[in-house]
Design a protein around this nucleic acid. Structure first.
Lengths: 364, 364
DNA sequence: CTGAAAGCGCTTACAG
DNA sequence: CTGAAAGCGCTTACAG
């Protein structure tokens, strides 16, 4: 390509595009076709695709024009083979809430939109003996570009070690600071739980209980300690007999609520560690012939769609799961591109006041 | 490899395994490593991997032993490049119910377990102008092994045409017979709806209404017509003013129920086309100050987890979504392997009796 | 700034 | 029943 004045470059581009248009019908183009039409080597085309700065602007322009004209997109399998790294982003999760899972998936897909990356699902069961082995096989075989790890998978340090060994990028979503800004998204669960506490205190409740999530989830600890902190602001405490441990599931929430209802001192308000358990608590309250919120106020956490579908609608604490998923996907790409943020990206929950929490009953 | 007696073959295998074990530490093996250790060509190794019958049993045994010893698995990206077909199975869906989606995903993953296939998510919005274009781009770029199409995507004949053109295998899940046994899974929605009708008739209801799903879903038609058929068995009909159309969503179900409650003749029982709409109906009933099931009985369809979490628990019709997903995945693999079933695989729903439907109120 | 050669780990004709 | 050659569509050193 000699050094031509602009008008001649335009003519050159136009010529190439004409040739490209003719080619178009033949089928899917490859990097070789682009190279031939542009009269450059395929390596140069590869450089343009990979945004290498080592290409003369005029060459870049010509190649890009042809790529656009042909609607060419590089073959992900071929790139993967050459790069020893696929274009798959794996979501590794064990959260039992379908709502959480679906929202997270949608968010990641939002973040991956308009890219060549595909979302691959890897549900796991951390209790399963094969969990570890199967995940490693997946990584070795499919060489995922990166992994997104929501709680509680994000808290598995052994897993993180394995990913480091294999050079797999990852983003952890967690309620505590577990990693560098390039590798994690932080949620301030404790702050959300404190808001729940303030809300219940403001309504006048004194006998307040908590249905806690499983010990194996850091979020369960964060939500509890934040709740305790919020109560303390109003001089209230959370005595041991006002804590019922459960497993983030509907059934465990129902049983926990029953324990609280039939305890010596029945609470007038209950903060459940997630909406699933709050939903179980609803049923326990109804079975006992009590009313929500007249007899017992209930507050949840997550704001999953079920919250708005209950009667009365559940007052709960919302984390923007979908936005978090999108942020995680984008962080993964930024990290790989060498553009990590300076500080940890974090999300603060906010209480969503609906109808399930009101003033406590008058009589003791 | 000369023709040795069995004992010598065992010695030969043992030798190879010793060499393989030593190799093991070096890192991931390739087809070339296997070939070298087995002293055969890599093509022969490829034949063993692909279950070609054109391999001498003794050679096959030797190669398989080494593969097992090394824990070798062929590189999916390399195979994809050579085969012009990836190992991704795409789930293309537009069902608004998260429960349905998660169950379907789990089922497909069940069916894909222990294979090299990965599940890739492709949620779509059929109303979106880009729907078509983006799906085609995905297919052209990623060359998915196959697609699984639940309703209503399964009903898009234009999409099917495109898949045929591109040679992409698919399995449709639908409530009507849309394709050959190799390419579809059938659900007998009408039969399930008829069961709902029989249940309500047996309880003594006469004024029975239906909240119908969207016109764009064949399942909505099937459920309605099956319901009408079930009513007819008891000499009952479904007059036009007893049908409220909605969109398979919570809000649309709530509004549809309100229309039915405030109509001239209020029904004593309502069959909702899915659980989401039934959940909306619950709220409408409560808002009107009425009780379930004392004033109005409600029956849903799908048996999503929310059904058991409501109070009172929802009587509904269950389709085994997860099992259907697993069957769809297996059918896709069987189809590709050239083993299609003789008849269409089908699933029949069954009514799950809980507490939301009872005898109608005594007074008119 | 650009290109020719070699390679990523497989498979598909083609021979024998 | 088995193998040597060529190719799938890209990228990574290595030269210049």
């Amino acid at each position: 390509m000699t050094d031509l004045p602009d008008s001649e470059q335009e003519a050159e581009v136009a010529d190439a595009l004409r040739e490209a248009a003719a080619f178009r019908l033949t089928g899917r183009a490859t990097i070789n076709d682009i190279a031939r039409i542009a009269k450059v080597s395929k390596k140069t085309v590869s450089r343009v695709i990979n945004e290498s700065p080592l290409v003369k602007p005029r060459t870049r322009h010509l190649v890009k024009s042809i790529i656009a004209e042909l609607g060419f997109t590089p073959d992900p399998q071929a790139r993967a083979l050459a790069l020893r790294r696929s274009f798959l982003v794996g979501l590794v999760y064990d959260n039992p809430s379908p709502q959480y899972v679906v929202n997270m998936q949608r968010g990641i897909l939002d973040g991956l939109e308009e890219t060549d990356f595909q979302l691959v699902l890897r549900p796991v069961n951390r209790g399963d003996a094969n969990y570890w082995h199967r995940l490693r096989t997946f990584i070795q075989q499919h060489k995922p570009f990166g992994l997104i790890l929501p709680p509680s998978v994000s808290e598995d340090e052994e897993l993180i070690d394995m990913l480091r060994e294999h050079g797999v990028d990852y983003v952890r979503i967690a309620s505590v600071e577990l990693d560098t800004p390039a590798r994690m998204i932080r949620t301030h669960d404790a702050e959300g739980a404190a808001q729940a506490a303030r809300h219940l205190c403001a309504l006048g409740h004194v006998d307040i209980a908590h249905i806690q999530g499983p010990e194996t989830f850091r979020s369960a600890h964060e939500r509890r300690s934040g709740f305790v902190r919020g109560l303390a602001e109003s001089g209230r405490t959370l005595p041991a007999d006002m804590i019922a441990e459960a497993g983030y599931t509907f059934d465990s929430g129902l049983q926990a609520m029953e324990r609280l209802i039939y305890a010596k001192r029945r609470p007038t308000a209950v903060f459940a560690g997630n909406d699933e358990m709050a939903t179980g608590a609803y049923v326990a309250v109804r079975k006992a012939g009590l009313r929500i919120p007249e007899d017992i106020s209930i507050v949840g956490f997550d704001d999953t769609p079920i919250a708005g579908r209950l009667w009365p609608a559940l007052t709960t604490v919302r984390l923007p799961i979908r936005e978090m998923g999108a942020a995680a996907a984008k962080l993964l790409l930024d990290q790989a591109a060498g553009n990590p943020p300076a500080e940890i990206i974090s999300f603060s929950p906010e209480i969503v006041v609906r109808e399930s929490a009101a003033a406590p009953p008058k009589a003791g």
